[in-house]
Design a protein around this nucleic acid. Structure first.
Lengths: 309, 309
DNA sequence: CACCATGGGAGAGATTTTCTAACTCATTCT
DNA sequence: AGAATGAGTTAGAAAATCTCTCCCATGGTG
C-alpha cells in the first residue's frame, strides 16, 4: 500500500471541497501559500494536475473530480472513528455504592470537576459488589476489597479501611437510659444498613455482648439513611469512621465505645477497574485524585490507634 | 471535520496491522523510535491508549481494535484511488494517422521512450480527423490544423506545414518518357493516398495542367504506401516534403518540379489535445519533445524558399 | 543462572517538512 | 484607471519528524 503525502491529500480535499485555496487555508488554519504548495506537491507526486488554475479561482480537473469523493469519504470515516474514541475518552463513567457516594464522593467531586474540566464525569450511585462490576459500562468504581467472584482482569486499589464502631446521637449518652456499657445496647434500637445486618453482626462477632443480637432493629436501604436516623436519635448505627467523620467531628454522632472498633470483614474500600483501563488518562487522573483524597482521610483518622482485626 | 495527525494514524495502522513497532518501522522506512513517538502522540491526542505495552511486543487495546479496521479501510481506499490516478498518469495514449506515424513518429519515438522511461507510450496508428479526436481515449494526437467540427475544448498546436509537390523515382526523369514539364504528368500514373484524391487535386488547383486530372491513377490506403510505390517507379506521388524527407535526401525520390510547391489545404500538421490536458506532465513532456523534433524538420526544410499558398 | 536476543521507551540533537511573510501576476469589478 | 480578488513564488523561520544512542524488562538458551 503506497500512499501519497497525507497532509497534502488533506489540503487537496479541503481546497476541492471549498473550490478555493483561501477557504481551504482558513479551514486548515494555514496560509494560502501553504495550501498552494501542498497541492502542487501532491500533483507532482501523482503526476496529474488536480486543479485548473484560472486567474480567478481554481476548478477541479477530471482527475481531481475523481479523487475528491474518495478522500472526503475516507477522511470522514477516519474523523468519525477517531472522534468517537476521543468522545468516549472524555466520558468518565463512575459507579459508586450509595453510602460512599453521598457521604464521601459527591461532596468532593466538584473539586475534581473543577480541576479537570476536560473530563465529563458521569456518576452512577448504585449498590454493586466487586464481583458484578461491569468494565464495559463503567470506567471505574468504588467497592469493597474482598468482594468475591472478580475476573482476573479486574483489579482493585485500596483507598482506606472500614472501621466500625457503634454511633448514636449525643442525647443517648445522657439521662437514666444512657449508653454506658455494651450491655446497654440491649435497651436501644439497632440501625442496619441492609437486611443482611452484616456490620452489626461483624462487630458483635468481635465484641460479643450478652443479650444483644444483630437480628433486632430497623433496616434502611443504605448506610446514609441509617446514619441519619442515628443522628436524630432513633437508635444506634454501626458507624463507619471515614464515612461518618463529618457527623462525628461536628458532635452530631458520638461513639459510646470508642475503643471497641473492628474493620469490616469485607475489607477496605477500594477503587476497581479493568486491568487495562488504569492507564487511560481520564481513569489515571481520577484514581490519583481519589487516592490523594483518601490519603487525607487516612491521616485524619490516625489509623494507628486501632488494632486491625 | 477534525482529524488527528494523519502521519501518526498511518504509523498506528502499520503497527497495529503488523502487531509490532519494528515491522511497522520497516514498512514505513523509519526507525522504531519514530513509530513509537508517533503512536504515543496519537494516543495523547485521542486521550486513549491504543496499545498495551508488554515487555515483549505490544497488543491492541479495545480502542485500538476499534480504530484499526476503519483506518485500514480508509487508507486502502485512498491508496486505491491515488494509485489509479498515477497509474493512468503514466500511460501516454497517442493517436496518429498512418503516414505521420510510420514516416515521422515511429522512427523518432524510441528516443522519447529512452528519454522518459517513466512514461508508458501507447501509440494507436489510425486515421482520424481533428473533428473526431476523442480526448477520453487519447491523451494527445496528431492531425491537420484545419479539420472541422472540433469542440472548443480541443486545442491544437502547429508543428510543421505540409508542403506538397510531385515526387517520383529518379528513373522517371530519364529516357524518352522523362518527366520534364508538368504536361508530361499526363503520361504517367498518379498515386493517391486516399480515394478522395485531395492532395493531387489541391496541387492541380494551384498549378493547373491541361490534360491532367486527379481522377486518374492508383489509390493506396495511406500516403506511406503511395510513396513507396513511387519509389519503386510505379508512378508519381503527391509528396509531403517533411514526411518524404528521408527518401528525398537519399535520392530515392526526386522532385521533377521543385518550384511548384503548395501547402495542403487542410493546413499544417499539428498536435491535438484537450485544453486541460496540455498541462499534464506526460503530455507536456511529449508535446515539448515533438515540437523540438518538428523544429528540426522545419529548419532542415528551409521553409523560406516557398511562398505559402 | 548468567547471558544474549528481542521489542519497546526516552531524550538530545539533526534533518526534513511545512509554514509564513512579503511580493508578484492576471483578471474582474467599479 | 484603480481596487479587489485569487493564486503563485521565494527565502527564511518554525515545527514536525526522524535518527541515534542508551536504557529497561522479559524470555529463551547454553
Amino acid at each position: 500500500m503506497k500512499l501519497p503525502p497525507l497532509n497534502a491529500l488533506r489540503a487537496f480535499e479541503a481546497a476541492a471541497r471549498h473550490e478555493g485555496f483561501i477557504a481551504a487555508a482558513d479551514e486548515l488554519c494555514v496560509t494560502r501559500g501553504a495550501v498552494s504548495q501542498q497541492i502542487k506537491a501532491l500533483e507532482t507526486h501523482l503526476g496529474v494536475p488536480l486543479f485548473h488554475r484560472h486567474s480567478r479561482g481554481v476548478a477541479l480537473t477530471e482527475a481531481g473530480r475523481r479523487l475528491l469523493p474518495v478522500l472526503s469519504d475516507a477522511f470522514g470515516r477516519i474523523a468519525g472513528a477517531t472522534n468517537a474514541l476521543s468522545e468516549q475518552a472524555a466520558d468518565l463513567r463512575i459507579i459508586c455504592p450509595p453510602a460512599t457516594s453521598i457521604r464521601w464522593l459527591i461532596p468532593r467531586l466538584d473539586a475534581f470537576r473543577a480541576a479537570h474540566p476536560e473530563i465529563r464525569v458521569r456518576l452512577t450511585t448504585e449498590f454493586h459488589s466487586g464481583g458484578n462490576y461491569d468494565a464495559a459500562e463503567y470506567d471505574i468504581g468504588f467497592t469493597c476489597a474482598l468482594s468475591p467472584g472478580r475476573s482476573p482482569d479486574i483489579e482493585t486499589r485500596e483507598l482506606f479501611p472500614v472501621f466500625l464502631t457503634p454511633g448514636c446521637a449525643p442525647s443517648m449518652l445522657e439521662g437514666e437510659a444512657a449508653l454506658k456499657r455494651p450491655e446497654d445496647l440491649a435497651r436501644v434500637k439497632l440501625l442496619h444498613e441492609v437486611a443482611e445486618r452484616s456490620d452489626w453482626q461483624a462487630w458483635l462477632d468481635r465484641f460479643p455482648v450478652p443479650g444483644v443480637s444483630a437480628e433486632s432493629g430497623d433496616v434502611f436501604p443504605n448506610l446514609d439513611m441509617a446514619t441519619r436516623a442515628a443522628v436524630i436519635g432513633s437508635g444506634v448505627v454501626m458507624a463507619d469512621l471515614v464515612l461518618c467523620r463529618e457527623e462525628i467531628e461536628r458532635g452530631q454522632l458520638v461513639l459510646p465505645f470508642p475503643d471497641m472498633v473492628r474493620t469490616s470483614p469485607q475489607g477496605p474500600i477500594c477503587l476497581i477497574s479493568h486491568r487495562e483501563r488504569w492507564q487511560e488518562p481520564k481513569v489515571r487522573r481520577f484514581a490519583e485524585w481519589v487516592e490523594q483524597e483518601a490519603g487525607r482521610d487516612r491521616a485524619a483518622l490516625d489509623l494507628e490507634r486501632f488494632d486491625e482485626v
